[in-house]
């Protein structure tokens, strides 16, 4: 479903701020894989997701989604294949627009936008049904401005928007990191429900090792712009946070820096 071949990306090449962000990433996801991605700060987790999404062109390598080489396409053209949820709840939705307007925009991801009215009445019914599943009471507030919603509500809405048109790949970039623990858990539950019901191929970056172990069927660890660990199936089910910390110290030669990874 997704194939990354030898992806390289260096930011600010030739300057004092030069940073090799991705240094030969190879990854192959099968249809329906739900992969959690962990690693220290600056390991390249978000950069890898941005490379897949097409935020900027990669220096080297190819990105293949569902058999099509998308390496040469900008983000808005790849969007028809990719659903994205960002770390900042403000990023994924248009604050000054209504909930139903946001959903209608998402419902046309990858389609031509013409001069038809933005929301059809059939769509409105469909949005209500989908919002009901989130269990946040948003189904009665279709015409509320998104700017009035809480961070957790906005993140859940973004998740729904990313999956309204079934994406070939769902990219979740620490999408619960900016939320309080209780809300984060709710959004993660919603994530599991949506990913499992639609059998979505998913990459989820997280700082939280426990979440990385509980969710998904496969776990990869990144360090210094490379994938250094890839655990799947039965082996992943037996994994503990302690195992992961040991592995991390072994491959990176340093202690895992974030307390957030251990707590919660």
């Amino acid at each position: 479903m997704l194939e990354l071949k030898n992806i390289h990306k260096t930011f600010n090449p030739g300057t004092i701020n030069e940073k090799i962000a991705l240094n030969g990433v190879d990854l192959k996801l099968d249809e329906g894989d739900f992969v959690t991605v962990i690693g220290g700060n600056g390991a390249g987790k978000s950069t890898m997701l941005n490379a897949i999404a097409g935020v900027w062109p990669v220096d080297e390598g190819s990105i293949i989604i569902d058999g099509a080489d998308v390496t040469g396409l900008p983000d808005y053209k790849r969007a028809k294949l990719i659903g994205r949820v960002f770390q900042d709840p403000m990023t994924g939705t248009a604050a000054t627009m209504q909930i139903e307007e946001n959903l209608a925009i998402a419902n046309r991801r990858g389609l031509r936008r013409g001069l038809k009215w933005q929301v059809s009445s059939g769509e409105r019914e469909q949005f209500k049904q989908k919002l009901k599943v989130l269990n946040l009471g948003l189904e009665d507030r279709l015409t509320s401005k998104v700017g009035l919603l809480s961070g957790g509500q906005r993140q859940a809405l973004t998740l729904l928007m990313a999956t309204l048109q079934r994406p070939k790949i769902l990219l979740l970039d620490e999408h619960t990191a900016a939320l309080d623990p209780k809300t984060a858990e709710k959004v993660l539950d919603a994530t599991d429900t949506i990913v499992n019901s639609q059998k979505l191929t998913t990459l989820m970056v997280t700082h939280n090792m426990k979440d990385a172990i509980i969710h998904g069927n496969r776990l990869i660890m990144m360090n210094a712009g490379r994938i250094v660990l890839d655990i799947k199936g039965e082996e992943k089910k037996r994994l503990t946070v302690e195992d992961l910390l040991h592995q991390f110290e072994r491959v990176s030669g340093q202690e895992f820096a974030s307390d957030k990874a251990l707590l919660g």
Binding site: D75, Y76, K77, T91, A94, A95, G110, L111
Partner: peptide, 10 residues
């Protein structure tokens, strides 16, 4: 309103 969101929505 939100160029990043717009690009992500194609």
């Amino acid at each position: 309103c939100n160029p990043t969101m717009s690009k992500a929505q194609g």
